[in-house]
């Protein structure tokens, strides 16, 4: 049994007094792909954003490897919050792909991908370009290296965003509904890339409404409802033999 790379314990999050995450416990082992399902507003995005400190948790803890995300343990019981710069260093181990791609529109595709390796990993320009072109080839966009993001389709932009995240070689990849902003015919070009990643041994936490992708590519499926994890298990356990009426209702509505 491999080690847990991500360990979320008793994670709580409030927005102005309203509890949105109510004690989440979740582990993701090295090489595992975990899909998170759940209705809109159930707290999936908030959970992902807490993992790389885009949101500050209200309680509990998140470990990525041996890093306590957002904090440093002092002597004894004390825990001290890190500065933004220190958090930036922790985030280099966690890649994130957003629903709206969020490519930098003032940079070409190649610049979007090379910037991280150049400025953060301190690769030479030639090495950074070589790594980026390899990644672009992997997502099938080597010929669009000099395009600007707005000149690409949504599916192409999302594949560039995946390449950008991969360029830093993060230990953990977070995906927040990566295909929800796409036209239906562009969904598979992105889920295909993600499935290949999962098969190649990447550690991924994926919020998605693509049940087909979850069933095929995920090692484990987690169902969230109202800020708690209601149920989790293998795709077969959750999709075909769910123990929870709420899960079954959600699956029925999503499949229609």
């Amino acid at each position: 049994m491999t080690l847990p790379l991500l360990r979320i314990s008793e994670l709580r999050k409030q927005f102005s007094g309203v509890e949105v995450l109510k004690g989440i416990n979740l582990e993701v082992r090295i090489g595992e792909t975990v899909a998170i399902l759940g209705a809109s507003g159930s707290g999936k995005s908030t959970l992902l954003r807490c993992v790389n400190c885009l949101e500050v948790a209200s309680g509990g803890s998140i470990w990525v490897g041996d890093e306590l995300m957002g904090y440093r343990q002092g002597s004894g019981e004390t825990v001290r919050r890190l500065t933004e710069s220190q958090i930036a260093v922790q985030r280099r181990n966690v890649g994130m792909v957003f629903q709206n791609f969020n490519l930098f529109p003032h940079w070409t595709v190649l610049q979007n991908i090379t910037d991280g390796p150049r400025s953060i990993l301190k690769l030479s320009k030639a090495d950074a370009i070589e790594r980026s072109m390899t990644l672009l080839a992997r997502v099938g966009l080597a010929d669009r290296a000099n395009a600007y993001p707005r000149q690409l389709s949504g599916g192409q932009q999302q594949r560039v965003a995946i390449a950008r995240a991969l360029a830093l070689e993060p230990a953990l990849l977070l995906f927040d509904e990566p295909t929800s902003a796409l036209d239906p015919e562009n969904v598979s070009e992105v889920t295909d890339v993600m499935a290949a990643l999962a098969a190649s041994g990447a550690t991924m936490l994926v919020v998605t409404h693509e049940l087909g992708f979850a069933r095929a590519a995920a090692d484990r499926v987690v169902f969230m409802d109202g800020g708690v994890i209601l149920e989790q298990g293998s795709p077969t356990e959750v999709f075909d033999h769910s123990q929870q009426p709420r899960t079954r209702e959600f699956l029925r509505k999503t499949l229609v």
Binding site: L54, A88, V89, R91, R92, F98, G116, I120
Partner: peptide
Amino acid sequence: EAAQALGMK
């Protein structure tokens, strides 16, 4: 957020 998520200071 995308820039932060990439580990930019």
